[in-house]
């Protein structure tokens, strides 16, 4: 007789805990809304990034690794793998700007 409310109480505590765990992110917005589109994932951005890599090329010439990454990035962007291309171009840029610490 006492066990039933006891079990119920523990179940309620469990559910409350689960609910709390689910809503830790305080103001969870955009439940049903369309996700925000990020503009740094487009072919256009890929090309502008490739231009940046060229512009950042140090006068003495970049490392071969940076050049190779940049070339691969450009090729991937052309072939449609935009995220892969952007990733390589970013690495190339990083190598050019901070050669000591890639």
């Amino acid at each position: 007789m006492t066990r039933v409310p006891l079990a119920l109480a523990m179940l309620a505590a469990t559910l409350a805990f689960a609910a709390a765990a689910g809503s830790v992110g305080r103001a969870a917005g955009g439940g049903g809304a369309d996700p925000l589109a990020v503009t740094s994932d487009t072919t256009h951005y890929c090309h502008s990034l490739a231009a940046k890599v060229v512009a950042a090329r140090p006068p003495g010439g970049a490392t071969t690794a940076a050049d190779a990454l940049a070339a691969a990035g450009r090729r991937l962007c052309r072939q449609g793998d935009v995220l892969g291309g952007i990733l390589r171009l970013r690495h190339a840029l990083l190598l050019e700007l901070h050669p000591a610490d890639p």
Partner: peptide
């Protein structure tokens, strides 16, 4: 790298969790 200010972020200084694509 966003097209515009997201509507859900209605107030400044508050944390929001928003799905992005």
């Amino acid at each position: 790298n966003l097209r515009g200010w997201p509507k859900v972020v209605a107030r400044l200084g508050v944390w929001y969790q928003v799905p992005v694509k």
